[in-house]
Nucleic acid binder design. Structure first.
Length: 681
DNA sequence: ATAGGGTTAG
């Protein structure tokens, strides 16, 4: 009854305040009963309200049953109803219908349609609408101008947006904010801060919407100090509870790598939206907390939030690091079931995870499916082929990428240079290093120098390696000396290896891998007293060589082995299979590479140690269990043992099986007795 | 009476 009262007094007010679809239907019925003479604006209200509740059928039927010729207001409502439900194509059809019926669009029509062009990147439709705005003389409306600016900004056309902004006579805070956020969203944070300063000089009262963009700009620039100052401003001005502002702050702390501060801010957030969860998950992943990030992913769903494309793109690098193919496949399945498999970010992240989990074929297949491949997609595919030991493919891809007008960035070059290093393409690598600086204007970072030193040292060009280190503008990092040390191990260069190791010790590097490398160099040269010296040095510093393990997935289960492992329930069969394999490969030329055993013990003891290495146990189990003809994928936590590598090549040949071995730094694709690393790793 | 600006991700 109360409802009837309100309806009679002010039916349109009642409609706009309707809180639920059932109340809306009641008011609608009331209106029909009252047989109010058909009122266009009331009809429009009804259409828009039904649209807001997602009941497009009712919206359309109200529209169709209106006996009067629809006006712009009524058309706008129908357009809005469709845009509310993301039915952009239909919204445009209604607009065309409106034009055909001779109803002129007004200054309310264009902001609605332009919004659709902003959110779904329909640039050509947006530009056509711009022409229509001019034609109907509506381009001076500030609402229309801001909507146009936003459409251009969201589509990356900063200059078009700026031209509109420059021509604006009266700029209010919303138009400034559209301009400011455009720069921030397009990855131009310096210019965003510039706009912010201009805004203040112009005397505009800055509001919290502007602040959200400023925080994002500070985050992109790693301006943590300024960011913290803004954080205090936010609290002082009472915006601390705003979910968008606090999410932007959260992202800033996550971006700066401050794990604890990020966690604290998240916990203190009064409302946590999907973006906040995604930021926190990414922060965990970037901090290397793989297990915790999975836990968080589950917890988020437990809290009733549904993962979107960003969530998946954020968690996938962690999945890739685990290297378990069945996990990547189940993520792919999850993406398909939730219609996220066409999201460009998800596709790229999936592709990368497949490559890192040894399925380069699946990675390539996904790569082919990505319609507009970003620089990240190209870089990831290049890196994938490179780490899998291919030399020519990364270079072909790199050239193709440039033919497609995608500009390489510093990460692309890390992939290209390391591929050249792994493949022994010294001249090509030097050429690309120069091109990086001269053509693409990228200042070489430590990683690039490390690739080059690695490339020279692997090729035995130690003079070039050392002179490059001397030319470096900054202090060499442990990674640089480590690359040199690695080359010294390959070529048995004791003196230089010792020199590189001394530099590493000076830098207080606590990576036990470097100590092991040096001790390997000494062991290979038979310098056992030096080996002992390194051992005791490690002991002194409390450093321990991590225990080696190899794992293999059978079905959806991961089986892990350590050297001499007897804990597996199929151990008897595994050792029997191993025995059989070793016997067969010995007949075709395999001899144990006992020199890799780093203890000063008798040869037969060494052979026994080698025989039960974790890689070999995993291989034997794989051959025991996997369907014939399918590749065997093994994951090793450290670098591959030389003897296991030789044995794997023989085994691949006699069993006609492809063995894909991922170690700490790269992949080995071993097929018909040959490895993609060409024994050069 | 209906319309414009903010946060995430490989």
């Amino acid at each position: 009854m109360e409802l009837a009262c309100i309806s009679q007094n002010s039916p349109s007010l009642a409609l706009s305040q309707t809180k639920s679809i059932s109340l809306l239907k009641q008011s609608h019925a009331q209106l029909v009963k009252l047989s109010t003479p058909c009122n266009l604006s009331l009809t429009a209200k009804l259409v828009a309200s039904y649209g807001k509740f997602g009941d497009l059928e009712s919206a359309l039927s109200v529209f169709d049953r209106c006996p009067q010729h629809p006006d712009a207001f009524l058309f706008n409502s129908l357009i809005q109803a469709h845009i509310c439900g993301s039915l952009f194509r239909q919204a445009f059809q209604i607009y065309l219908q409106m034009l055909e019926l001779g109803v002129s669009p007004n200054r309310y029509t264009f902001p609605l349609l332009l919004k659709a062009c902003s959110t779904s990147f329909m640039l050509s439709q947006g530009a056509q609408l711009h022409a229509h705005c001019v034609k109907f003389g509506l381009n001076s409306s500030p609402f229309v101008t801001v909507a146009l600016m936003d459409m251009y900004m969201k589509n990356g056309l900063i200059d078009s947006a700026r031209r509109l902004f420059d021509r604006m006579v009266e700029r209010d805070v919303v138009s400034w904010n559209a301009f400011l956020s455009g720069y921030s969203q397009n990855g131009r944070p310096e210019e965003a801060l510039g706009v912010y300063n201009r805004m203040r000089v112009a005397g505009v009262t800055v509001d919290f919407v502007a602040i959200a963009s400023v925080i994002s700009a500070c985050s992109q620039l790693r301006f943590l100090h300024q960011g913290k100052w803004i954080h205090s401003w936010v609290i002082k001005n009472g915006f601390g509870a705003d979910v968008v502002i606090s999410t932007a702050l959260l992202e800033m702390y996550a971006n700066s790598g401050d794990f604890w501060l990020t966690k604290k801010l998240f916990e203190e957030m009064p409302t946590k939206d999907l973006i906040a969860w995604n930021c926190l998950i990414s922060c965990y992943v970037q901090s290397g907390m793989i297990g915790d990030s999975f836990e968080l992913f589950r917890k988020m769903q437990h809290n009733g939030l549904k993962p979107n494309g960003s969530t998946l793109a954020g968690i996938l690098p962690a999945v890739g690091r685990v290297g378990a193919l069945h996990l990547v496949r189940s993520c792919h399945g999850f993406a398909i079931r939730n219609a996220l498999d066409l999201d460009e970010y998800v596709m790229t992240a999936l592709m990368d995870a497949f490559a890192k989990s040894s399925d380069l074929v699946a990675a390539q297949r996904l790569f082919n499916l990505i319609p507009n491949k970003s620089v990240v997609a190209w870089s990831s595919m290049i890196d994938g082929y490179g780490t899998h030991g291919y030399g020519a493919e990364p270079i072909i891809l790199f050239e193709k990428m440039q033919e497609n007008n995608i500009k390489p960035n510093h990460i692309t070059y890390v992939g290209v240079l390391s591929a050249c290093a792994h493949a022994g393409f010294v001249e090509e690598g030097q050429g690309y290093f120069r091109k990086m600086v001269d053509v693409h204007g990228i200042i070489p970072r430590l990683q690039h120098y490390a690739c080059m030193v690695d490339m020279f040292a692997r090729a035995g060009l130690f003079d070039d390696a050392v002179s490059l280190i001397n030319q470096m503008p900054t202090e060499p990092s442990p990674g640089i000396w480590g690359a040199l040390l690695g080359g010294c191990r390959i070529h048995g260069h004791v003196e230089l290896g010792k020199f590189a190791a001394e530099r590493l010790f000076e830098l207080n590097s606590v990576d036990p891998g470097f100590y092991v490398l040096l001790s390997n160099i000494y062991a290979a040269a038979g310098m056992w007293s030096e080996v002992r010296e390194i051992r005791s040095l490690m002991k002194q510093k409390g450093l321990r060589k991590p225990a080696g393990w190899s794992s293999i997935e059978i079905g959806n289960k991961v089986h892990c082995f350590i050297s001499g492992d007897m804990s597996h329930s199929d151990s008897g069969k595994i050792y029997q299979k191993l025995e059989e394999l070793m016997e067969r490969i010995s007949k075709v030329g395999y001899t144990p590479a006992t020199k890799v055993v780093l203890h000063d013990v008798e040869a037969d003891v060494k052979e026994n140690v080698l025989r039960s290495h974790s890689e070999k146990l995993a291989m034997a189990y794989g051959l025991l269990k996997a369907a014939p003809g399918t590749p065997i994928r093994i994951l090793k936590n450290l670098r591959t043992c030389e003897d296991c590598h030789v044995a794997a090549k023989f085994i691949s040949k006699i069993t006609n099986t492809e063995i894909i071995l991922r170690d700490a730094v790269r992949f080995h694709h071993i097929k018909e007795g040959v490895c993609t690393c060409r024994d050069y790793w």
